[in-house]
Simulated scan of single mutants.
Amino acid sequence: MIQSAPQIGFDRYIQLDWMAMAIKVRAGLATLDDLETLLDSAGLGKEAKSKTRTKLNALAIEPRNELVAFIDRGVEIFSPQDDCAMTAVFAWGSAIASYPYFGKVAEFSGRLTAIQGDCSVSEIHRRMSEVYGDREVTKRATQAVIQTQANWGAIERVENGKRLNRPPQRKVSDEKVIRWLVEAALRFMGKAMPVTSLPTMAVIYPFQIDQSLPYVLSKSDNIELRAEGPSNQFAALRS
C-alpha cells in the first residue's frame, strides 16, 4: 500500500497583530468586522483574506471541537493582558496544538538552532520534505511557518532570509501560562513526556520556563503527573 504524505494544514503567513485581534474576537472584546478591517488594512486580496480567516478561525475564533476548552482557557488567560509577548505565547501554543505541521517546523527550528544559535533555512526545508514529501506545497508551507515564527519574535531571518538566528528565550513565569503552554506541547507530542524534558522541548524553543514544573503542574486540572520508577515523573493530558 502506498502511504500518502501527512496533511499540511498550516500554509499561510499569520501576523501577530492578527492573532491579537482574533483573541479579542473570541473573548467578545472585538467583532469580526474589526478583524476584517485589520486584514483589509494589510492589503490582502479576497482569496488570501479568506484563507487567512480560515487559519485564524482554527487558531482562536472557531477552534476544532476537541480544542475548544483548551483555546478558551488560553483566551481567558491572555485576553486581559493585551501584551505582544503574551500574545506570542498564545499564538505559539495554539498553533502547535492545532496544526502538527507548524509544530514540526518549530521542532526542527528548535533542534537545529539549539547548539550554535542559528541554522540554514534549507536544512529545515530538507527535514520537512523528508516527513511531508518533497513537494512544492511543502516548500511554500514551510516558508509560511518560518515567516510566521519570525513575525512572532521566535527567530530572526538573516543573510537575505537564508539563515535563522535564535534570539534570547523569553522567560515565562506565570503559573497559568506555563500550564497552558505545557499542555499545548503535550497535545502536539500526543504522548506522556518526562517532566525533566519539558522545559527543553524543541517545539517550545522560544520560551524559557522559569518555575519548578512538578510544583506548577501538580495544580493543573488538565495535566496529570505519573511516577514511573523511583525518580522518573511523566506528564500527560488527563483523559
Rank of each mutant, 00 (worst) to 15 (best):
W180C: 01
Q147F: 12
R170T: 09
M193W: 14
V177K: 12
R187D: 04
M189C: 09
V158E: 09
G190A: 04
V195F: 14
A184W: 02
D174V: 14
L181E: 03
M189N: 10
G161E: 13
V172P: 03
E183W: 11
A184T: 13
G161H: 14
P168E: 01
T148R: 13
A150S: 07
R170C: 01
M189T: 07
N151F: 07
V172S: 10
L181G: 00
T196H: 11
N151V: 05
F188E: 05
E175M: 00
E175Y: 01
P194G: 05
E159H: 06
R163N: 03
S197N: 12
R163W: 07
L181F: 02
K176H: 10
M189K: 15
M193H: 11
E156W: 08
R157I: 00
P167C: 01
Q147R: 15
V158W: 01
E156S: 07
A150L: 02
R170N: 03
T148A: 13
A185E: 03
N151E: 14
G161A: 09
A185F: 03
A154H: 14
R157F: 00
V195W: 14
V195N: 08
E156Q: 12
V172H: 10
Q149T: 11
A150C: 06
P168C: 02
M189I: 12
W180Y: 05
K176R: 13
M189W: 11
F188P: 03
K176G: 10
A154N: 09
S173C: 01
F188M: 10
V182S: 08
P167N: 01
R166P: 00
G190H: 04
V172M: 15
R163H: 07
E156A: 11
G153F: 12
G161S: 12
V177R: 09
V182A: 09
R157C: 00
V177E: 15
A150E: 02
S197T: 13
Q169E: 06
A150V: 03
V177S: 09
P168I: 02
R166E: 02
S173N: 02
E156H: 07
I155H: 11
V158A: 04
W152F: 12
Q149C: 10
K171S: 06
R170A: 04
G190M: 02
I178C: 06
I178L: 10
K191G: 05
R179P: 02
K176C: 04
G153A: 12
R179V: 08
L186E: 15
M193S: 11
L181P: 00
P167Y: 01
I178V: 15
K162Q: 13
K176M: 08
P167D: 01
A184F: 04
M189S: 09
A192W: 07
N151C: 04
V182M: 12
E159W: 08
P167R: 00
W180H: 04
K171Y: 05
A185N: 01
D174A: 15
G153Y: 08
